[in-house]
Simulated scan of single mutants.
Amino acid sequence: MTKRDDTKKDKRANNDSLLNTLLKLPFTIMMMLFISAIVSSVIELLGIYFGWWEQPGVKHSELMLRQELEYLRITLAKNAITAVSGLTVQTLFDNSVGYVFRFFNHIGLFDNPDFTIGIGAYIGAIVNIFLLTFMRFFVFVFSIPLYFIFGYVALVIGMFERDRRRVGGGRESGTLFQLSRNSILPSISIALFLYLAWPDSINPVYIFFPSAFLCATAIAYMTASYKKYT
């Protein structure tokens, strides 16, 4: 009776933990966006101050923003979300933070020579970096199907290896299971943070493809090392 009660308590605790995680997810995402934007802004401002960039003042962040928009048109022109819903990341950006981009472009922020020197360069750079951060987040959202595809393949491979171990009498490894399970979220969150805070233009494929591969590897090992009898 005590064992049954403990099992119920464990299931209830797991359900509560999952619910708390889901409730905290939007707040966690917003905090990651804000922190990565701050980190990227600090790097950009230091680059302007110490002359790390080839382009003066706000021009470097403006060039980054335009190159990222080009990556949107080329790299994510065809993806699963667009194929199903018809919604493109370019449309999502234009109908959200794109309004802010067009507003500053309309008032001449990107063409005003005053924003290549002095305090104006720092203000313009911060605006561009925040726009760039949110745009990169939209890119990540449209890259989620890549994780699902890799994860599904890894799950199938892991289940096959688990069944083979179960039939062959292979040994279980609780340490490997825990390590693999705890590596899934960091393989995604670390890649996302690096992409959001990256101080220069970068093709998202170079970030999310290795991240999806590492995530899938963790899923495969987690499934394969799951206990043989439940």
Rank of each mutant, 00 (worst) to 15 (best):
R136Q: 03
D111I: 00
M64P: 00
A154E: 01
I35N: 04
M30P: 00
S36F: 04
S96H: 06
E161N: 09
F150D: 04
T91H: 11
A125F: 02
S225V: 03
D10V: 07
L92V: 08
V39D: 06
E68M: 06
P210F: 13
M31T: 07
G151V: 05
G118D: 10
F140V: 00
T88L: 09
L196Y: 14
T133Q: 04
P186Y: 13
I123M: 08
H106V: 01
E161G: 06
V100K: 01
R136G: 02
F177I: 04
I81R: 05
F50R: 06
Y147M: 04
K8V: 05
L25E: 04
L192W: 11
P113K: 09
F160C: 06
G168V: 05
S85E: 03
K78Q: 10
N95C: 03
A191D: 13
L23Q: 08
F148I: 14
T82N: 12
N182F: 14
K59Y: 03
G174P: 01
L63C: 02
L22T: 03
R165V: 05
R12L: 10
I149M: 14
K3Y: 08
S41V: 01
V127L: 13
L69A: 00
D200K: 12
L63F: 06
A13M: 10
F93A: 08
T217L: 15
A218V: 01
Y152R: 06
L19N: 10
Y49C: 02
L132R: 09
S189L: 15
R164V: 09
L45T: 03
M222T: 02
N182Q: 15
P199L: 11
F148N: 10
F142R: 02
Y99C: 00
R66F: 08
Y206A: 15
T175D: 14
D200S: 14
P210C: 12
E54K: 07
V153S: 11
T75S: 03
Y152M: 08
I117P: 05
E68S: 00
E161H: 12
Y152H: 11
A218H: 05
L131D: 02
P204Y: 13
I144G: 02
F103I: 00
K11M: 07
F140A: 10
I149E: 14
L131G: 01
L46K: 02
T175P: 01
S225K: 05
E161Y: 12
H60I: 00
V97P: 00
L76F: 10
S143L: 11
F142Q: 05
H106K: 10
T2S: 14
